[in-house]
Computed example of a mutant assay.
Amino acid sequence: MSDDLKLGLNLGYWQRQAHDATDLVQAAERLGYDSVWTAEAYGSDVFTPLAWYGARTSRIKLGTSVAQISARSPVTTAMTAMTLDHLTGGRLLLGIGASGPQVVEGWYGQPFPRPLARTREYVDILRKVWRREEPVTSDGPHYPLPYPGGTGLGKPLKLITHPLRPEIPLYLGAEGPKNVALAAEITDGWLPLFTLPDKIGSMYGDSLADAPPDFDIAAMVLFMVTDDLQSALNVVKLMLTLYIGGMGAKSRNFHADIIARMGYADAAEKIQELYLSGRKDEAFHAIPDELADGISLLGPPARIRDRLQLWRDSPVTTLLAMGPQDEPTLRTVRDLVLG
């Protein structure tokens, strides 16, 4: 439970068109937002926009939500993170995640199996690189260093540049209970995508039982300040239609799985079936309003203020606001969350 929620701005990834959100990011910094976050899927990458915004701000923290581990070798991510952290004066928050088999195998051409073991090994190498205690080696099966085979000339190396911080904060994007438990064990924070604040305890209590006291649960939450509640609900339902219905295969969709664990198993199955059969409009209408409302903060300011209590009563420590597109909305959200 946290009465002192931190507030961040989550920009996500670009859609069809490139989008420079510098003005919005600078406004968030002026208004006292703690952090701004970018993302990647199979379009815009996660680091370049963050470097762009970091060069145009001076205080706001800069987060990746998330850098996909199959997109880069662990030492590449470590080098990129170290470089960006230096250039921005130690403002980086590095969120990583495994993504899903469609993207990992279809886009990056990498194997998806054993994502938890791969993530653990990845994090271990990141920290070895930044700490510079010795040349980096790894005997794990996923990212062995030096590479076994090839020319046989590979040798362990140590990062040339001394990091500004040898312990860059690490976050893990996770949805399954085992992955959340891994986040609590080996990283500094968890980045949940879809959250029912009053069910975090029942869904993830065991996973978070051993989390350290300063473990940051930074939940992504869509804010829409409006008098037209149904239109706002429809925006959320449109997003859920894609994620539940089409962001994954029929046999393996992590987003549909989490919705099922929230208590909407029948709805998730129906939505996915309708979407994959081309009946997307019916899939949209099959999403319960209460689900869309529960994972979001929608409506007039007074309604949002009331519903914020659910988040304050939950284990969430940071709200990453999605949706604001202008300074007045950012200010309203700031006033509601930070008081």
Rank of each mutant, 00 (worst) to 15 (best):
K270I: 07
A211K: 06
M203E: 03
K250I: 05
L242D: 10
A209L: 07
E282S: 01
K237R: 14
R252S: 12
A267R: 08
N253A: 10
M247Y: 06
D206G: 13
L238P: 04
P288V: 13
E290C: 10
D281K: 14
G245T: 00
A260N: 08
K270T: 09
S251L: 01
Q230W: 00
Y264T: 13
K280V: 00
K270R: 01
L229N: 10
D289A: 13
D214Y: 01
R279C: 08
D281Q: 13
D198T: 14
F284S: 09
E273I: 09
A249S: 15
P212E: 15
I217C: 05
L233V: 10
Q272F: 02
G201K: 06
R279G: 05
A286I: 04
D227S: 15
A267I: 10
G205M: 02
A260K: 09
A232R: 04
M239R: 10
L242A: 07
S231D: 15
K199E: 01
D206L: 07
V221E: 15
G263L: 10
A268E: 05
A218P: 01
G248K: 13
D257V: 05
Y243M: 06
F284P: 06
V225M: 04
L242W: 12
I287K: 04
L233Y: 06
S207H: 07
A283C: 04
D198I: 08
A211H: 06
S207K: 12
G278A: 15
H255S: 02
L274M: 05
L222W: 00
N253V: 10
F254T: 12
D289H: 12
V236R: 07
D198P: 03
